[in-house]
Write a protein that binds this DNA or RNA. Sequence first.
DNA 1: CTGTTAGCGCCTTCAC
DNA 2: GTGAAGGCGCTAACAG
Lengths: 345, 345
Amino acid sequence: MPKKTTIYDIAKALNITAATVSRALNDSPRVKKATKELILETAKQMNYEQNKLAQALKSGKSYNVGVIVPYINSNFFASVIRGIEEELYPKGYHVIICQTHDQENLEIENINSLLNAQVDGVLMSISNSNIETNPAFKNLVRKHVPLIFFDRKKDIKGVSSVTIDDFKGAYMATQHLIEQGCKRIAHLSNDQSLEIFQNRFLGYKQAILDNGFEFDCNLVVETTSKVESGSLSTKKLLSLNNPPDGIFASCDFSALGAIKEIKAHGLSIPDDISVIGFSNEPFSQFMELSITSIDQSPMEMGRIAANVFLDEVNSNGNVKSEKHIILAPELIERKSSIKELLLVD
Amino acid sequence: MPKKTTIYDIAKALNITAATVSRALNDSPRVKKATKELILETAKQMNYEQNKLAQALKSGKSYNVGVIVPYINSNFFASVIRGIEEELYPKGYHVIICQTHDQENLEIENINSLLNAQVDGVLMSISNSNIETNPAFKNLVRKHVPLIFFDRKKDIKGVSSVTIDDFKGAYMATQHLIEQGCKRIAHLSNDQSLEIFQNRFLGYKQAILDNGFEFDCNLVVETTSKVESGSLSTKKLLSLNNPPDGIFASCDFSALGAIKEIKAHGLSIPDDISVIGFSNEPFSQFMELSITSIDQSPMEMGRIAANVFLDEVNSNGNVKSEKHIILAPELIERKSSIKELLLVD
DNA sequence: CTGTTAGCGCCTTCAC
DNA sequence: GTGAAGGCGCTAACAG
């Protein structure tokens, strides 16, 4: 086991003090150029590498940032993470990724792990709707660890957030279906205790009302972010006396489930039923019957969240005003909802 | 900023020494039961939490393990990571995830970051085919940081690995196409400097030869793991004088590209051309035209890799024999390759 | 400009 | 059983 060389080793070799070595290594202006160069030189020769742990212990900073997401294997979250990484790596931060699998206990464990790792901040998209009552979470807040929500947020005092305008996205999606001629539009909703899903529901409802349609609560079915769940809910919708001719799903996965179910019933898309999803996952584009969806510019969301974090860290708790940044959604039209292809020209 | 309570605070409150507190907290047998309980009690009351950083500094262990993968947004890698997490979390380790985006420089940066974080081990699936010549990588080996390869491995002395039998998987895939009646089977290959892709190519070739077909190198086209690349290569194949009637893609993404391209040419799948992928990504199942693929049991791969790591750490460098564990692939038959649906019954 | 000293929070001999 | 003391590697305050 080759012992690691420390600044003391370098100091000894050069007959100076560790303090000077430390200063030189940190490029302090109070070191003679000659000695500095000498130190840097010998440091390299001796294969010196800074022990970040010791530095962290000393400074109280770890230069680690935790990112907690429900799943890492969705393009949306993976892209947000990518955006975060791109902003934070150049600043010397390292990104620790944790996934909750939408399980409350795992979310708690993750928070604890991150606290143990002494992270300098946490960027998260919550799964647990009762998060604020949890001890682990309270710890996070009590310790003044900068916390930023993205996408799945909760309104908590002092916590900044970056989201898209889910209400608007949902409104656009519903409006789009109406413009395609749909008269009875159903909504595959999701956990209403999470703001994003609540807003998607509200946007949907508003669009329905604004267009002079009647809001029918039988057309709103709760689902999860799973394909199977989308199928199941759609099955219910199709068994109604007066089934829908359009479906706005709160995520692409449930939209996929809906499509499978509709086909299984021998109905055609978009002619019998138009479908639109949310998130613009790549598969929605790959599908033979490509899925219309709402893009959430995840990379940008990640970048912005990272910068909000950096602002908080660098202001040392001075600028403690929370920020709430809301990005604009974008409608991506594809086959699952466009009926008038034949009418073109 | 509420200062964190340390073992000294507890010691002071109880009029004893920090040493005793430390011992009690670590459940040392050399502490009177009464004092131990008292200490534990007050620790809880004072909201004491161990500073892992200090402990890590002292012990030289960080209880952090790094996982490096090309991408996190593929189901395969996400599942391997999940498997790793499941084994390591209960042992007190935390998993730090890094992605390389198949870029050599990022792979290097990630290794350096992980070394800085003083990780106790690295589990990785390599992107950089020249990895062993790189300084960062040499560092890893020189420092005796346990290193385990999974899936994308390289034969390096002293480094254990967990993979599936790619040769066999490829052989099975090709054999399957032959059994479906394909006579001219093409292969969308991938970076041949990585063992897994080399083995997939070799398995394909062997199956071709074993069945009495002639190996035609014009039917082997290099691709990347991207959908577009699969389309592009397929375009080339379709423009041959004697185009293939079956395609074995080295990954599901290029298989998807192939399918898109084949359809764009107005050909039918599987009747004109059968297609089979590799990895059993969920979308291969979701597709309207579901894709036949090879399953790699990623969760299990992750679990095993984690356990190989644990063995290495716990043996303190004694048992320095490398392990090479090879899992069995499984053929998942779906629509993109099964022609005789009409013949059933 | 450089050295001295002390401490971040924890653990671990060595004594008693 | 418990206390005292030193050190993991680094940095920062205070001297000079």
